[in-house]
Design a protein around this nucleic acid. Structure first.
Lengths: 113, 113
DNA sequence: CGTTTATATGTCTTGACAAGTATATACGTG
DNA sequence: CACGTATATACTTGTCAAGACATATAAACG
């Protein structure tokens, strides 16, 4: 339903993603770090999960959430068309174009699915 | 008011920015290209202008809009914290850190209100 | 089993915002 | 100055999403 851009428009969701960029965390950890009510965190996590930004690993009653980078990569790809406005080195742009038509799949750190 | 991420959450505004990434255009040109009603275009342009994404050059009754990349650059900077998830070469990341040269201040997750 | 812990979901309200429509402003030109 | 062109603004309305609060699920554990 909601495309990636609307997902990351919400500040709390960006904060959650920022946390998960460092390491995976349980709902309670996110709740404490961000000082948000638990239902708020859970609902944002649901939105992020359904949009493919995160995934949950069930450990007893805990849900440990970790980042899934693909949607953010799409955002990064959209930005490519503007990047030449501020990037003096064309190299970075070339790399982004490179991953558009080349299926260069690689291992992601701490990631299995 | 609205931070950059909410501005680009709107699909028509992203389309406008995409057009202006190619070349500057008048309101009428954008209107025809995107097949949007003129007030819609003008209102989105106002939002983009007030958020610093575009600026207008007045030419008679025409307003020729051009891109101002700074806010998009902020988005790009925010993405930097995730880029190592999909970028094999650390070089690209380094280049982005490079343009912050000197100052290492950037949005810190977990510190928001 | 009942209780505690961890997380999810449901409901309601409220606010923001985008589209539609009408109208205003501003400039150029005869 | 009247008129056409180009763009901006005002006003209204419908939609949708986020927060608050209450409650449900589910697992661990005594």
């Amino acid at each position: 339903m909601q495309p990636s851009f609307e997902i990351i428009a919400e500040p709390n969701r960006r904060a959650i993603l920022g946390l998960l960029a460092i390491s995976e965390r349980s709902v309670g950890e996110i709740e404490m770090k961000l000082r948000l009510p638990q239902p708020t965190v859970s609902k944002h996590l649901r939105v992020l999960r359904e949009a493919g930004f995160v995934e949950a690993q069930i450990a007893a009653q805990r849900r440990v959430y970790r980042l899934k980078p693909e949607p953010l990569q799409e955002v990064d790809d959209w930005l490519a068309q503007f990047r030449h406005f501020w990037s003096k080195h064309v190299d970075a742009l070339e790399r982004h174009l490179d991953r558009l038509h080349g299926e260069s799949k690689q291992e992601e750190p701490g990631e299995n699915q």
